[in-house]
């Protein structure tokens, strides 16, 4: 089981990287770009086939280390590797 954690600055916390990329895209003529947010992705390989166990563990990892709740929000995606 693989857990993929998507982490972004929370709504309301200015994202300078995303803002800069957004401006560059608009300068290059992508006039339909409204905004860009940049974040990070963390893949955690888990020694379990249980979705419940994986989710519970990764949730705890996010709460204790992977995410700073003052400035960041996150989503956990569970990927069953048997199906690719």
């Amino acid at each position: 089981m693989k857990a993929r954690v998507h982490i972004f600055y929370k709504d309301g916390v200015f994202d300078p990287q995303g803002n800069t990329v957004s401006q560059a895209l608009q300068r290059q003529g992508f006039s339909r770009v409204a905004s860009v947010r940049m974040g990070k992705v963390i893949d955690v390989e888990m020694n379990t086939t249980s979705t419940e166990e994986a989710k519970r563990d990764v949730q705890k990892m996010c709460d204790t280390l992977l995410v700073n709740p003052v400035i960041e929000s996150y989503q956990i995606e569970l990927i069953n590797q048997g199906k690719g």
Binding site: Y9, V13, F14, P16, N68, I71
Partner: peptide, 9 residues
């Protein structure tokens, strides 16, 4: 609180 990337990059 927390420290985030400088707003001016």
């Amino acid at each position: 609180g927390a420290l985030a990337r400088n707003s001016g990059l």
